[in-house]
């Protein structure tokens, strides 16, 4: 709105500040708790100002892990999460951009049949097919491996569909001009189509990275060795310790650390991400 009404401006700012507070306050409290030690928290009231245990807590959690639930060091879990999230995001993008390229630009038998097959997987996220998928992974000896963590989550209809829609909007003359310029199918894909999809790829990467990072159920099922735990599982394990109270300042430290990479990804890719969502460069 381009109106200039002080009251409206004030009101909209108040609403936005309230919104920010609702989101930010819990994060702040988590941060405050992550800087305390156990005795500070005995009162049962969450303090609002950071304590002096910041370095100790973070160092312990990152490099040693929480002893009570015998969780591995968070650094290891974060590395696992990172490998899984990157594997899922990159794998999904690579597979779906290539299959979208095939479906849009090549005429082969059963083209539409394959397209609808891919499309149907949209209705089958891993949670729905978890038993058969687990069986397959187990039979292939892929339990407790990065491959087992990522591959079942990579098959993706959404991204294929998105790239297909984008490719359909790329003018056909571009392909024709490239053919006349002597570019074959691979050259056209690499030199023309990939650069044009840049913003789409970035937007998808952000969404898929967060999707991969936040996976909970699947890693819980396929990993039994500590060394393959992901951070999202780790937090849960620390909360659900048997016969003891959770050590809240370690839990919060882990939670905050676990929130960091997705936030960083959004932060750094924000420009491209927004561009990919709202405009298309053509």
């Amino acid at each position: 709105m381009v109106e200039n009404r002080p009251f409206l401006t004030l009101l909209s700012h108040l609403i936005m500040i309230a919104g920010v507070a609702i989101v930010a306050l819990p994060v702040w409290i988590a941060f405050v708790i992550s800087t305390m030690d156990a005795t500070d928290l005995l009162g049962g009231v969450a303090p609002l100002w950071p304590g002096d245990q910041f370095l100790e807590n973070y160092a312990t959690i990152l490099f040693q892990g929480e002893q009570a639930s015998s969780a591995p060091p968070v650094l290891l879990m974060m590395t696992n999460s990172l490998i899984m999230a990157l594997g899922i995001a990159i794998g999904k993008i690579v597979i779906s951009i290539i299959s979208a390229y095939a479906i849009v630009y090549f005429r082969f038998p059963f083209r539409m049949f394959f397209f609808w097959m891919i499309f149907m997987t949209l209705m089958l996220p891993v949670e729905v097919r978890i038993m058969p998928t687990f069986k397959v992974i187990a039979d292939l000896n892929m339990l407790n491996s990065y491959a087992g963590l990522t591959i079942p989550l990579i098959a993706s209809a959404t991204a294929t569909f998105l790239f297909r829609q984008f490719f359909l909007t790329v003018p056909e003359e571009l392909l024709e001009a490239a053919r006349i310029d002597g570019a074959g199918p691979v050259k056209f894909f690499i030199d023309i189509l990939l650069p044009l999809s840049r913003t789409n790829i970035a937007a998808l990467f952000v969404i898929l990275f967060i999707y991969g990072w936040n996976q909970y159920l699947w890693p819980l099922i396929v990993t039994t060795e500590d060394s393959y735990y992901t951070v999202v599982m780790g937090v849960q394990r620390m909360v659900a310790v048997p016969d003891a109270d959770p050590i809240w300042h370690y839990v919060m430290t882990t939670a905050l650390l676990g929130m960091l990479p997705p936030a960083l990804v959004v932060l750094f890719m924000q420009k491209l991400f927004v561009k990919g969502l709202v405009e298309q460069e053509k």
Binding site: P171, A177, G184
Partner: peptide
């Protein structure tokens, strides 16, 4: 022959320049 092998050049109505 493929278009690239015919040694022709074409100017399109909408120019078809590579946008990137």
């Amino acid at each position: 022959h493929e278009p690239g092998q015919r040694d022709i050049a074409m100017v399109f109505q909408n120019y078809a320049l590579y946008p990137h």
